[in-house]
Simulated assay, not measured.
Amino acid sequence: MSNIVIVDDRSINRTIYAKLAQSIGPEIEVRDFGNPTDALAWLALNRADLIITDHDMPQLDGDEFITRFRAMPRAETVPVMMITVNDQRVLRLRALESGANDFLHSPVDHCEFVMRARNLLKLAHAVEARAESAEPPPEAAPVARLDAHRAKRPAAANWRFAPRLDLMTGRVAGAQLLRDGLAAELADADALRLLLASAAPLQAGRRGTIRLSLAARLDGDAQESAAVALAKRLAETGVAPHWLDLRFDAAEIFVAPQRAEEEARALKTLGVGLTLNLGAVNLGILGHDIGKTGRLAAPIEQFIDALRPTVAFSCPVSPSEALKITRLLGRGARFPLVAGEVANAATLTLLRRAGVCEAQGACFGAPFAARDLSNLFPPLETAALKRLA
């Protein structure tokens, strides 16, 4: 059961929004409040999975309501969508600072309301599920922690690199490290050790930069920031920061935009490359007006405007759908695009013509073992090195 809380001083709006929310599915329970103070009192004792609030309310405006809600325990991961008739950028930025995750304009498009609400619920549930699957807290029994660790981490990991092709030159531009078929993470000490050990000899061969990718997750239990920990490892190995490409997941940015931006900014200051991973693109998440303006949903736009990352997305199987999504994302060429999970080589030509810079996926064959990485990027011969000196 998912609890959706609606806060609006107008009863007709609450009635409409409640009916739309209930149309999402049978497992939806809606609570509506005309007074934001009453909503805060209820939220102090009950759990919400999604909050939908108006901005202009006489008792408390939407910014103040969200600020007070975010100060409550366990409120950080609850998505909040604000509805307003005001399209000013200043208002959006102020709402983002308060903790809003997404926006809708009034009068509300019914289909858009349902799609955005459904997507925010899915994102929130995904983050919650991952948190529940994390290792037990420190006070848990040592045996329980050990059993959880063994279940989570296989004794012998299956490490692979998925190559990424530059569609303009046809050369391999980088690779993403996989652990047991999934994207390896920056917080995984073994993954970072292997990636840096693989990058060091390539860098020593004086090749052009080859960006090796890891997933950057938001870890609230980390004793030190990801940037500080990474800086130490880079200093130890001598690998240049720009050889690393760290990928932030759009789902986490929706739930904790301020925290994601802070961590990404610290890593960018260190000198590493940043990529925003949209995953399987859903136009409800991207924004209803992207076809007209090329703008994404508010938290994603804020992240892009602040940090100027590369943007990656999972390519649809259908070439026509892939082309449609690519053109929408690439409109205005505001950021480099990377297509992932490309299934066939025929799609590559369409992607290149639509402005996609790089691609990776099954069309390049199975990911290769770490020991074979050097075969793709052999060191330059001595004569060539002398010419470069």
Rank of each mutant, 00 (worst) to 15 (best):
A370P: 10
A227I: 04
T326K: 08
I6S: 12
D38K: 15
R193G: 00
C111P: 00
C357H: 12
E185H: 01
A100Q: 09
S133R: 11
F303K: 04
A240Q: 14
G294L: 12
V255L: 15
R193A: 15
E261Y: 08
E263Y: 00
I253T: 00
R206C: 05
D49R: 05
R118L: 13
T15A: 09
F161D: 14
A204P: 00
P241E: 05
L50Q: 06
V5H: 07
E262N: 11
I210R: 13
R352D: 13
A266F: 02
L195P: 10
A124W: 00
A231L: 06
F364T: 01
L234G: 12
V7F: 04
A134D: 15
L350G: 11
G330S: 15
L165D: 05
K324S: 03
V114S: 03
A298M: 12
A346G: 11
R130A: 08
R171F: 04
A100N: 09
D9W: 05
R353S: 15
L329S: 08
A148K: 01
G332M: 06
A229D: 14
R164H: 13
L286P: 02
H149N: 08
G330R: 15
R94F: 00
L196N: 05
F33Y: 09
R179C: 12
A117S: 14
R160D: 08
D38T: 07
L40K: 03
A191Y: 07
E263P: 02
R145N: 05
D190M: 03
T293Y: 13
T84D: 10
E358V: 14
N101E: 01
M72Q: 11
S320Y: 00
I16M: 14
L270W: 06
E64G: 00
E29N: 10
V114I: 14
C357F: 10
R94A: 14
T275P: 12
H125K: 13
T169E: 12
D8S: 06
H105S: 10
R145W: 06
L267Q: 06
P201H: 04
N119W: 09
R153F: 13
A151E: 11
V30S: 02
K324R: 14
S318T: 00
A240N: 11
D109I: 04
D221G: 03
A200Q: 12
Q258I: 02
A306K: 15
